[in-house]
Amino acid sequence: MQNSKTQETLTGLFVACGIAALFFMAMQISNLGSFSSEKVYNISANFENAGGLKVKSPVTIAGFRVGRVSSISINKDFVAVVKMNIASQYKLPDDTVASIYTAGLLGEQYISLDPGGEEEFLEENGVIDITSSAVILEQLIGKFFTDKESQ
């Protein structure tokens, strides 16, 4: 009988270890621990060019991540509409500027928000009016050459 008891204890230990490993994966390896429990609100911004922005790209203020891009689409004027989830403790003024930047030379693209000084705050489904589009390297180089030629 002793033997079967040890067996059961070890089995219990095994199952507990397995569940602990699953928990570890969920909390420590994935982004579940950091973000999913927070409350968020949606805002959107229209960009002429969304560049290499992707769903789940980070949205930052002063380099600190406050949310993620939730969807990217184009509207009837062929302007990219980027919707993002912002954690609800960060209230953004109405005249916030949204810009698309690249992390490092080859890094991923992200949205940087620059809060303005307006008293009014962006509500759920608010729209950011002032945006600056992604910088496309090829366009920049092309511009550089046409400027050179015209000189």
Partner: peptide
């Protein structure tokens, strides 16, 4: 090591699919 891992790996897409 940990923060890059956490910000890149997604619970739904990576962990659940692995399981």
């Amino acid at each position: 090591y940990w923060s890059q891992m956490q910000s890149t790996l997604d619970f739904q897409d990576d962990i659940i699919n692995g399981i």
